[in-house]
Amino acid sequence: MANAVENPKRRALGRGLESLLPRLSATAEAPAAPPPPAVAEGTPREIPVGEIDRNPYQTRTRFDEAQLAELAASIAATGVVQPILVRPQANGRFQLIAGERRWLASQKAGKETIPAILRQVSDEQAMEMTIVENLQRTDLNPMEQARAYERLSRDFKMTQEHMAQRTGKDRASVANFLRLLRLPEQVQGKVEAGELTFGHARALLALENPETIVSAAQKVGALSMSVRQTESYVQGILNPEKRDKGKGKENKEAADPNVREAEERLTRKLGLKVHIEDKNGRGRVIIEYAKLEDFDSIFGNLLAP
Rank of each mutant, 00 (worst) to 15 (best):
R102Y: 05
P48C: 02
R102G: 05
V86G: 08
E51D: 12
A73C: 05
R102V: 05
I52N: 05
G42C: 09
P56S: 10
I114H: 01
Q58R: 06
E100D: 07
V86W: 06
P115C: 07
R102H: 11
D123T: 13
A116W: 08
A90F: 10
K108H: 01
K108G: 00
A69T: 11
Q67D: 08
W103V: 01
T43L: 11
Q120P: 00
L68C: 07
P48F: 02
P56F: 11
Q58V: 06
V121Q: 02
P83R: 14
F94N: 03
S122W: 01
I117E: 03
L96N: 07
L96W: 08
R45C: 10
P88Q: 09
S122C: 02
E124H: 04
I52L: 10
A90M: 11
P56K: 12
Q95E: 13
V80W: 07
V121F: 00
T61G: 12
E65H: 11
V81F: 12
R87I: 00
A72M: 04
W103Q: 01
T59N: 08
Q89H: 11
P88D: 06
G99W: 04
G92N: 12
S74L: 12
V80R: 08
I84R: 09
T59A: 15
P48H: 03
R119K: 13
R62W: 09
I84Q: 06
T43P: 02
T59Q: 14
P88Y: 10
Y57R: 13
E124C: 02
I97W: 01
K111A: 06
P115M: 06
L71R: 12
E112C: 06
E41W: 11
R45M: 11
E41G: 11
E46V: 06
V121I: 08
E70P: 03
A98D: 09
Q89V: 11
L85E: 02
Q58P: 02
R102F: 06
N91G: 12
Q120I: 07
L85N: 02
G79D: 00
Q95G: 13
A77D: 08
E51I: 10
A98F: 03
D53N: 13
A77R: 15
P115K: 07
L68G: 05
L104N: 04
E65C: 08
R60F: 03
R45P: 00
S74K: 14
E46C: 06
W103T: 02
Q67I: 05
G42R: 09
A73T: 10
P115N: 05
A105N: 03
G50M: 02
I75V: 07
P83M: 13
F63H: 15
A66V: 10
T59W: 00
V121L: 03
G50P: 01
V80Y: 07
R62V: 14
G92I: 15
E124A: 12
P115H: 06
D64A: 15
E41I: 14
A105F: 04
V49N: 00
R60A: 03
Y57N: 14
P48A: 04
D64W: 13
A73V: 08
L118F: 01
G110L: 06
V80E: 00
I52E: 01
S122Q: 03
P48L: 04
A76G: 15
I75D: 00
E41P: 07
D123P: 10
P48N: 03
A105L: 08
L118Y: 00
G42Q: 07
T113L: 02
P48W: 04
D53L: 15
G110Q: 04
R93L: 11
Q67Y: 04
P83C: 13
I117N: 01
L71Y: 04
R60P: 03
E41D: 11
